[in-house]
Simulated assay, not measured.
Amino acid sequence: MSDLQNIEPQPSHLEYHVPVLYAETLDGLNIQADGVYVDCTFGGGGHGRGILKNLGEAGRLIAFDQDADAVKNIPEDSRVTFVPQNFRHLQRFLRLHKVSKVNGVLADLGVSSHQFDEGERGFSIRFDGPLDMRMDQRQSLTAATIVATYSELQLHKMFEHFGEVSNSKTLAKHIVEARKQMQVQTILQFRAMISSVVKGNPNKYLAQVFQALRIEVNAEMEALKEMLLQLNDVVEVGGRVAIITFHSLEDRLVKLFLKNGGFDDEVDDNPFVQHTKVPRWKLVTKKPITATADELKKNTRSRSAKLRVAERV
Rank of each mutant, 00 (worst) to 15 (best):
Y16H: 14
P288K: 14
L188D: 08
G104K: 08
S304E: 11
E15F: 10
I187S: 03
R303T: 00
E226I: 08
E236T: 15
G110L: 06
R95P: 01
L256A: 08
E24I: 00
A148N: 14
N30W: 09
L258M: 15
A192Y: 08
Q66R: 11
A68Q: 12
V80P: 10
P11A: 00
Q189N: 12
T145Y: 15
A291F: 09
S168Q: 05
Q183W: 03
L4T: 13
N6H: 15
R214H: 01
G56N: 04
F64P: 13
R134M: 04
I289Q: 06
P130G: 01
V237P: 09
D65Q: 07
L131E: 00
S78T: 13
S113M: 09
A68G: 03
V235Y: 00
F64R: 05
Y205M: 07
L141Q: 13
V111D: 06
G262D: 15
K286S: 12
E76V: 08
V165C: 04
S196W: 12
K98P: 11
K282P: 02
F93V: 08
P202F: 00
I175S: 00
L231V: 02
N270L: 14
R301F: 15
P9G: 05
V198D: 03
L228M: 11
I51V: 04
L228H: 07
L14T: 13
D251K: 01
L61K: 03
Q189S: 12
M135E: 03
V197W: 02
D251M: 05
Q66S: 07
L141N: 01
D39Y: 08
I194Y: 03
A212M: 07
N203K: 12
A68H: 13
R240W: 09
E216N: 04
H47F: 02
N30A: 14
P288H: 13
L29H: 11
D136F: 02
V267I: 11
V313H: 10
G45Q: 08
V20N: 09
G48E: 05
L258G: 12
Q154D: 15
D233F: 02
G59K: 01
Q32P: 10
V309E: 11
L249W: 01
E15I: 07
A310D: 07
Q274K: 14
V267G: 03
A242K: 00
F210G: 10
K297H: 14
I289F: 02
R191S: 00
